[in-house]
Design a protein around this nucleic acid. Structure first.
Lengths: 155, 155
DNA sequence: CCCAAATATTTCAAGCCTAAAATTTCGTAC
DNA sequence: GTACGAAATTTTAGGCTTGAAATATTTGGG
């Protein structure tokens, strides 16, 4: 009696699809929790947090287009978020010296203070959400994710 | 000469935060590619695809609230997406027999055909995007993600 | 200098998303 | 059978997101 050959090519695409669905479930779940806590505990949103985080790494501010480049969102999107952050007094726009087309977005002192608080909580939340993984497991997972990223970043 | 004790508790939270940022980068990147291909190649969106996928598993249709439950999105959100899918002729609403409050959303034959095509492409895209991982690596990754999910799903 | 192409940003239309309010219907206690 | 709370859905207001159009400015070739 002969065995059929294992259809390896078909199986791996199913394995990868299954992996993708699990990955999506994990990250969507974590993201939903982060959004909820930002909203309920700090009356803010993830996109606002992301903008504050980017600006906090550039004390001299970032041009609007650089900001949208780092965050991988559209220019028009950043315009709206910075508008709202500025209304709240967390950021401000300065004219770019030497280029009257460009605007530089910066944190205000209030913005920096708000971000510091948010960042501390954010790290705690993430730690709690990934509490199921030991340090070793987290490192293995990170390594595999990096490998997937490396292959994906080619195009 | 004495060595300082390793601050293990602090390190693991940093390890987990790093993992989270990598995970987010991987899934956001994959999701962005899937959205772009759905738009450019099939003139549709990921939320529409998700609704079609859910309905395709229930030939008799799903109540609007069950649909929003499965997809983990709000009721009002599902109302809008099904509105648009119905305008496009891919879904329809039927009155729920025995409960005049409820609506059942179903695929039309056109909707089923559209989903079948999309699903084939979707699987190929995901396979390509995760091509950096061998079958073994994908399985290890899946197992670790499942472990993280199990711990996270408690609350 | 002058002007055309390129660049930086904002505005706009449309879709997605949520929480909360409004509407309709159901089920039940009386 | 009537009224009242619960359930299913839609509507609404507001924020996020994109791509494309509009605006303002810069830059480089002639």
């Amino acid at each position: 009696m002969t065995l059929k050959p294992k259809p390896a090519t078909e199986l791996i695409s199913k394995t990868r699809l299954r992996l993708w669905l699990k990955l999506l479930k994990l990250t969507s779940g974590i993201e939903a929790t982060l959004r909820r806590r930002l909203r309920d505990d700090h009356d803010t949103t993830l996109p606002r947090f992301d903008v504050l985080a980017a600006l906090s790494r550039y004390p001299d501010g970032l041009k609007m287009s650089d900001l949208s480049g780092y965050l991988k969102v559209s220019n028009g999107n950043v315009t709206g978020i910075v508008d709202r952050l500025t209304e709240e007094g967390l950021t401000l726009r300065v004219a770019s010296p030497g280029d009257r087309r460009a605007q530089v977005a910066r944190l205000t002192p209030k913005g920096r203070a708000a971000f510091d608080t948010l960042a501390r909580h954010h790290e705690t939340w993430v730690d709690d959400l990934l509490t199921g993984l030991s340090a070793d497991e987290a490192e293995t997972l990170t390594r595999l994710v990096e490998k997937a990223l490396a292959a994906q970043e080619q195009p």
